[in-house]
Structure formats: structure tokens, C-alpha cells
Write a protein that binds this DNA or RNA. Sequence first.
DNA 1: TCCATTTCGTACATTTTATCACAATTCAAG
DNA 2: CTTGAATTGTGATAAAATGTACGAAATGGA
Lengths: 226, 226
Amino acid sequence: MSSTSYPPARNNRTRNRKKPRRDEIPDIVIGRLPIYLRTLRQMTAEGKEITSSQELGQILGISSAQIRKDLSHFGEFGKQGTGYNVTYLCRQLEKILNVDHTWPVVVVGAGSLGTAIANYQGFAKRGFQIVAICDEDPGKIGKEVAPGLVVEDCARLSARIREEGVKIAVIAVPAHAAQRVADMLVEAGIRAILCYAPTTLKVPPSVRVEYIDPVIHFQHMTYYLR
Amino acid sequence: MSSTSYPPARNNRTRNRKKPRRDEIPDIVIGRLPIYLRTLRQMTAEGKEITSSQELGQILGISSAQIRKDLSHFGEFGKQGTGYNVTYLCRQLEKILNVDHTWPVVVVGAGSLGTAIANYQGFAKRGFQIVAICDEDPGKIGKEVAPGLVVEDCARLSARIREEGVKIAVIAVPAHAAQRVADMLVEAGIRAILCYAPTTLKVPPSVRVEYIDPVIHFQHMTYYLR
DNA sequence: TCCATTTCGTACATTTTATCACAATTCAAG
DNA sequence: CTTGAATTGTGATAAAATGTACGAAATGGA
């Protein structure tokens, strides 16, 4: 093993970096960090110990300068002339993104999408454990849609969100039901919603919503297909 | 019915708008158009005939000026003092986005995600018809995963892409297989890929890739959960 | 008809984001 | 030890995106 250490032993006399102020960091920067993290984890899996902003940029199709500047908002994680220690940078990004522990997640909607989500192993592997799923359809309640995951009544889900302090939810219901579901989730204390329904939700500013609508992506791409 | 007509009868002597040049329009603008379209279609379904940039902005949480500016890249679709005719603006956006006809789509991967995608009615409703699905697992080939959709051999899918001129594909396989699948699709003539695998693909510049990775969204949101 | 109100489309100003380019550092080879 | 190549972190600059504000319609009611 080499004698090099991460983080670099920086000289505080010569480096007088300004304290990173969370609330000033652009959201667009935050949005790129998970991509960096995913790529670094992939490198870890491949046994790669060191990388550079150039290599990362190459893989991701963005400039090395952008990666360095993005990271510089949070501290100094690399070493000049050498690059970044993959494992160390992973850990740092996990801390920054607040994913250095497992988050419980609830799913609303147990149709084919909800079921697919419940069965996706990738969530747990990356720190998001689906702890409950519900559906309005009485015919679905009681069904085990994934190993150890039985469809509950929506009221029961709401209670569990409160009891267990769940903060993250997935909406996998038809568009016409999505706003009603969102209202219920917000009321129960959910703070982050991943919405698969093809509609825009109205929620208080304290709640963050992100959307996944594959058709939006198709329509974006067809513009360039002439 | 009112006597108003869309598009507005504009006076070409006073309005000397520059010709919109496709290749100059920022991608970020293109990316918002499908959202506008989705919202307008929702309005149509609700029987709403007229809307305004202000109303749209309210619903979507963006400024009215941005909506007007985005649309202005492509022409003049509204009427001062009145707003936009919902149906007319829908048709225009469909033309701009190249979704004024149905696109055939193929899916690679017939696991739970691929199956959910194959069963999702929302694609056909919005102009994207899934015409074929394939999987490497011989155990899955021949299975009918959705009404009228039987899992094929990957080689057969490749042939159909060529024969039928399919341009759009969905990748719904594990990350470790995604690059191999992408190479196959590009080779077969696919020009747009929607990738559900949590990895970044390497494709020629002529091929466009968009990604859907729910964990990325979770990790983006957890940053704000403190 | 006239006036008040609404809304669009856009020129201009401001803010945000991305890129450039370089001093400082690290390391390995000679 | 010295040199050369690689790489970081960042101030300066450039580019892109967004917001402001206003003239020019359009409408409806007095």
C-alpha cells in the first residue's frame, strides 16, 4: 500500500478556502453528484482505486473542469498530480448527499409499475428500502407483491409513515389519482416524492417532488429524429 | 363560438420575426416542451379551450415569461389579451416535437421492469407503440408478457428493428448488460435510447440516450432532507 | 365609442452556469 | 536531486438561461 493519504494533508496557512455554505450550492450541482457517485461505485466494483476528473468526465461526457468545480463546493477531495481515491470520494459524496445510511421508502400503487418497483433489487442495494406498499383497490390488499411486502390499505400506510417517520414516497398510481395521493402523503409527513404519474403535483414548498415520465423523454428525443 | 381565429392573423409589416433555426434552439427549451404538451392535453381532457402563459406557469411552477419565450422560438401561437387556444397549441407542439404520428418502440429486457413497461397503457395513448420485446433468457422467450406481445430472441429483435425501421428503444436490463445491448441496438439502427439501467452508456453522437434511474432522484432529494 | 384590463412577444438587464487557464503540488524516472 | 508529466482547485472570463418591463394587440363593459 502507498503512503499517500486522503484527504490530502492541506496546508491551512496557504489554503484559506471559504466555508461551503449549503444553501448557496446550486441545485444543478447537487443533481450531478449522484451521477458521480454511481460511477465511482461502479469503479469500486471493478476494483479501481484511483481516478481523475478527466477520466470521470470522459465516462460521463462532461468536462473535467466541471467535475472539479462541482466537488470544490464541498471541500478538497483530490490530490494534485494523482487524482481522487475512489473509495474516499465515494464516502464523501455519500455524506454530502445524506445517503450514508439506509432510507425507508413507501410506495403508493400496486399495479404493474408499483409491483415492478417493489421487486427492484437496485433500491436496497443503493440504500433505499421499500418498507410498505398500498393500494386503494380492495382486491389488491393482502397480496404479497414482493418477498415480504404485502399490499396494505392506504389509511394503514398513512399511519405507518407517521409512526416510522418515513420521509420518502413513490407515487405509482394513475394520473387522475396522483394529486389526491400526494395530499395524503404530505399530510402524513412525507418530505420527498418520486412521482411516476404523468402529471404535475401541487405540494407545499417544504416538500420536494421529482418526476419520472418516460413519455417526456421519448418526446424530447423525437425532436431530434428527423 | 367566438370569431377569434388561431393562429393569430399577424401583421407581417409590423412583425418581422426572425426565422426559427432549429439547430440553434437550446436543448433545455426542447426539454420543457413535452411538459407543456402534457399539461395542455390534460386541459383538453378537462374541456378547457383557452389558457394563458400565466396559468400554465402557475400549474408548472415556472414563470409565464419563460413559457412565452420558449414558444417564441418556434412561432407565434397566442393572441394578445386572450391567451392560447389549447387545442391549437397542442397541435403545434406535436408538430414541433415530431409526435404528430405514432412511433414504434422496442424494449430489451423482459424482467419485471420490462414487463411493466410492456403493460403500461400510457405509451400507446401518447403516441408510442411497443412493437416488440426481447430477452436473452431462453426461459422467457415465447412468453406473452402483455396482450399481443411475445418475448423474442434478441437476434430476432435486431432484425425487426432493421426491417421495420424502428428508431426508438428502451433498455430494461441489468447494468452489466446495458452497454452490450446498446451496442446491438446502435448497430441495428436505433437512434434514440431510453435507458433504465443505472449506468452511463457510450454511443456515437448520432444516437441520443436519456436515462431513468429512480435512485438518482432519491439521492438528489435526500440532500435536502436534513 | 372609449377606456380599463388582459395577455402576448420581445428587447434588454441580470443572474446563473460553464469553460479557460494557470499556480501549486505530486510522483516517478533518471 | 532534478526534471517532466499529470492533476487538482480556483479566479477570471465567457456563455447561457432567466427575469423585467413595455409596446402592441385583443376584449368586454360603460
